[in-house]
Design a protein around this nucleic acid. Structure first.
Length: 262
DNA sequence: ATGGTTGCTTAGCAA
């Protein structure tokens, strides 16, 4: 099974690149974040022609997540299972074959101390509660997406610049570590313990040419799945500016890909 | 040098 995750930063702006990447990589399961489109505007037909079913939680302008799969997803769930009404589309889960797939777009948090920051920490806590309530670390499960957290400074090119930001603050990191401690393995880190490989570079400040990157896009797997992981890579090429036209512009995130033995 | 880019929506927000 080939599994991938990518924050596309608008599925409509990334249409050409997304289809080209799907054609090259042919993942069995593909978690997408920041669709920035409603369910109605989601390109179901085009993706179906490419061979993919889609479980979508869309939203106008912001957020939006989807799970694409070559086999039809079951048990689709579009919200965290708690009493909070939440207008932000940041979660979708589905069963694909025997695997529980959770696709997340964790809030960025903007600035430490802001309302958005409080929402981020609360959202991470809600996610952890949801996972603990509905799943066991002994079942095959993968939690993928843009977590907006760098787990430690191995995932930060310039730690001094990012220290105590919403990405690196100890409270945000504690949220991610809570998931790891429950029983999720960071499959990319396991294959690349040296770190210093990134999945996100801000559009501003020439961050990509300067490689001022962060690894904040994760594939987290329970032990039954993680022990079958044979490779995990980040497709840095996809972050480069392309030719002219619609496909010229990259997302600010690169896709992360993991291969699991069947 | 207190900015810089991109996307959505159309002046301002979010990242």
């Amino acid at each position: 099974m080939i599994l991938a995750t990518w924050n596309v930063n608008s599925i409509r702006s990334r249409r050409e690149r997304l289809l080209a990447w799907l054609d090259r990589a042919r993942p069995d399961v593909f978690c997408l974040q920041e669709l920035k489109c409603t369910d109605e505007a989601f390109p179901y037909d085009e993706l179906a022609r490419a061979g993919y079913h889609a479980a979508v939680s869309g939203q106008k302008t912001y957020n939006g997540v989807a799970i694409l799969a070559q086999s039809e997803p079951g048990d689709v769930c579009r919200r965290l299972d708690d009493d909070e009404a939440d207008a932000q589309a940041r979660f979708v889960s589905a069963r694909v074959g025997a695997v529980a797939v959770l696709c997340v777009y964790v809030p960025n948090g903007q600035v430490v101390g802001s309302e958005a920051w409080a929402y981020k920490l609360a959202w991470l806590a809600r996610l952890a509660k949801h996972v603990r309530k509905h799943y066991s670390p002994g079942e095959p499960l993968v939690l993928c997406g843009d977590t907006n957290v760098a787990r430690d400074d191995l995932d930060v090119d310039r730690p001094a610049e990012w220290a105590d930001t919403v990405i690196c603050h100890p409270d945000a990191r504690a949220g991610l570590h809570g998931l790891l401690d429950w029983g999720l393995a960071d499959v990319f880190r396991d294959k690349h313990p040296e770190g210093k490989t990134y999945s996100f570079w801000d559009y501003r400040n020439l961050d990509f040419p300067r490689n001022n990157g962060l690894r904040i896009d994760h594939i987290l797997a329970t032990a039954p799945l993680a022990r079958r992981c044979v490779s995990a890579e980040i497709d840095r090429e996809e972050r480069k500016v392309g030719q002219g036209g619609e496909g010229g512009k990259p997302s600010d995130h690169a896709p992360v890909v993991a291969v699991f033995q069947d």
